[in-house]
């Protein structure tokens, strides 16, 4: 019995590792018969420390332990699944990637790809062709229009085409 108490005394001081406490810690944790006595010893040793340090002046009698224990009867025991375990560091870094500007860029690129691919696999839209009457263009109008397009062709350098070619639309003509 004294050996158990001595181990509890060392546990009280944090001077005995739980793995070395063996049966003493198991009894302490078990509570109930036998363990109840161990718990009383644990509480008393801490009480003595509290009185020696003068901490007992702030808490009367046996302290608030009994009140807390009573209040906890209304509380549901924790479920292991509800406990948030410490996550590995790499997972934390991966989470933080989204706050990094590069991460945001990558997210934007992924979204763009998703839109393009989604559009590619989308069912083809039904299009109808309507005939637009073409008015004959006079040589003067054509010349003026060409001059205007050439003069404002600097915005089409990105296509790698220059002059009127950047305005060219290719169409297929099917003979009826």
């Amino acid at each position: 019995m004294n050996d158990h108490k001595e181990k509890i005394s060392a546990l009280t001081d944090g001077e005995l590792r739980p793995r070395d406490a063996g049966d003493s810690l198991a009894r302490l944790l078990a509570g109930g018969e036998g363990g109840g006595g161990q718990r009383a010893v644990w509480a008393r040793y801490h009480f003595i420390g509290g009185v020696l340090r003068g901490e007992h002046r702030h808490i009367k009698g046996g302290g608030v332990a009994a009140r807390v224990a009573e209040a906890l009867l209304d509380e549901a025991p924790h479920r292991p699944a509800a406990v948030k375990r410490r996550r590995p560091r790499f997972a934390l870094r991966r989470l933080r990637l989204w706050w990094w500007p590069g991460g945001a860029l990558a997210a934007a690129a992924a979204l763009a790809v998703a839109l393009v691919v989604g559009d590619f696999f989308a069912p083809p839209a039904v299009t109808t062709v309507t005939k637009v009457p073409v008015r004959p263009v006079t040589p003067q109008t054509e010349s003026a229009l060409n001059a205007f397009l050439v003069d404002h062709g600097e915005f089409h350098g990105a296509h790698g085409l220059s002059g009127l070619m950047s305005y060219t639309r290719f169409v297929v003509h099917e003979e009826e």
């Binding site: 009280t12 302490l28 944790l29 509570g31 718990r39 644990w42 509480a43 801490h46 009480f47 420390g49 509290g50 340090r53 901490e55 007992h56 702030h58 808490i59 302290g63 608030v64 332990a65 807390v68 224990a69 906890l72 509380e75 025991p77 924790h78 479920r79 292991p80 406990v83």
Partner: peptide, 18 residues
């Protein structure tokens, strides 16, 4: 955390004075 509510009483007994 594993559901042993009584184990919390040991922590209370330990730290209530402090």
């Amino acid at each position: 955390q594993a559901g042993d509510r009584d184990a919390f009483n040991l922590l209370v007994a330990r730290y209530q004075w402090k």
